[in-house]
């Protein structure tokens, strides 16, 4: 049972990190960023290029990747999404098109094969609860907790964070208080993209950077956010724990073959029983009516 607990927790932390950026952007700006998975993969390849082509140290490469991808997220909003904001279908089509373009361009330019791996922060493994665990996986749990705590501090104790919450709660009222929703929305896109890059930097060293991974990350982030309730950070954490442990238990007691449908089954169940998600408030009123 010990190994299942450990790896279930690690799995959940990975899901939290993968979904946080998507959730933050949607929660603040209302934009469902379907380019999220592509941004994750681009961040991985970008960091790989900085390390292997420009021979920069890993930590510096990671920082540059996070900042540049965050800035790219702001630009994505300012130059493309701002024109269609509020038109939900257009936002989805535009971001999904961007995702396809980014991923297929990577494929076209030869980013294929298994040589694209990022280094781990700390090498080695330790014995915990009767199993060996690599330190990188334990770090993911730690980084997940730190990011959640930092997000809490940011949204509760900084001017911009409070503005974020204001926009998320009631955009028009926030406008009357002098908060510029366009600026805040572009920042939310930037921070969402940066969180996606951070997730890529800490998760991808466990495996390899692949173009197809972009589609998987998007589906994972969507599933976790919808199960947890779109826009709810606490919901993301709860959904990640449920799906993460369910996947691990499925792999342990059934077969790894079935893990791929766990998040989708959770999604179906939640959409049927409580479409707003476990802790989502955005559609709750509509559901009551």
């Amino acid at each position: 049972m010990g190994p299942t607990l450990i790896y279930g927790l690690i799995n959940s932390a990975i899901l939290v990190l993968m979904a946080l950026g998507f959730n933050l952007t949607f929660g603040i700006s209302g934009v469902a960023n379907f380019a999220y998975g592509a941004i994750y993969v681009v961040a991985g390849f970008f960091a790989w290029s900085l390390i292997n082509t420009f021979h920069l140290p890993f930590v510096l490469s990671a920082l540059i990747a996070i900042v540049v991808i965050g800035f790219a997220g702001v630009c994505l909003y300012r130059f493309i999404l701002t024109r269609i904001r509020g038109l939900v279908i257009s936002e989805v089509i535009a971001t999904f098109a961007i995702s396809l373009v980014l991923l297929e361009l990577l494929r076209y330019f030869g980013f294929i094969g298994s040589k694209y791996t990022l280094p781990v922060l700390v090498n080695g493994s330790v014995e915990l609860l009767d199993t060996f665990v690599d330190i990188q996986r334990l770090l993911i749990i730690g980084i997940g907790i730190v990011v959640l705590f930092a997000l809490y501090l940011f949204t509760h104790h900084t001017r911009m964070g409070l503005a974020f919450r204001g926009i998320a709660q009631e955009e028009h009222t926030s406008l009357s208080l002098g908060i510029n929703p366009e600026r805040i929305a572009s920042w939310s896109m930037g921070i969402g993209a940066a969180l996606s890059a951070l997730a890529a930097i800490v998760i991808l060293p466990l495996g390899t950077v692949t173009v197809d991974g972009g589609y998987d990350v998007l589906i994972t982030a969507l599933s976790v956010c919808i199960v947890g309730g779109l826009g709810s950070t606490f919901g993301v954490v709860i959904a990640s724990l449920i799906i993460g442990f369910a996947q691990q238990l499925t792999a342990t007691y059934l077969s790894s073959h079935w893990t791929m449908i766990v998040s989708l089954v959770a999604l179906l169940v939640v959409l049927t029983v409580k479409p707003s998600g476990l802790l989502g408030h955005q559609k709750e009123l509509e559901e009551r009516v």
């Binding site: 190994p3 790896y7 893990t259």
Partner: peptide, 10 residues
Amino acid sequence: YPTGAQDFSA
């Protein structure tokens, strides 16, 4: 394992 699997611990 499904294509794209990254965790083989179980």
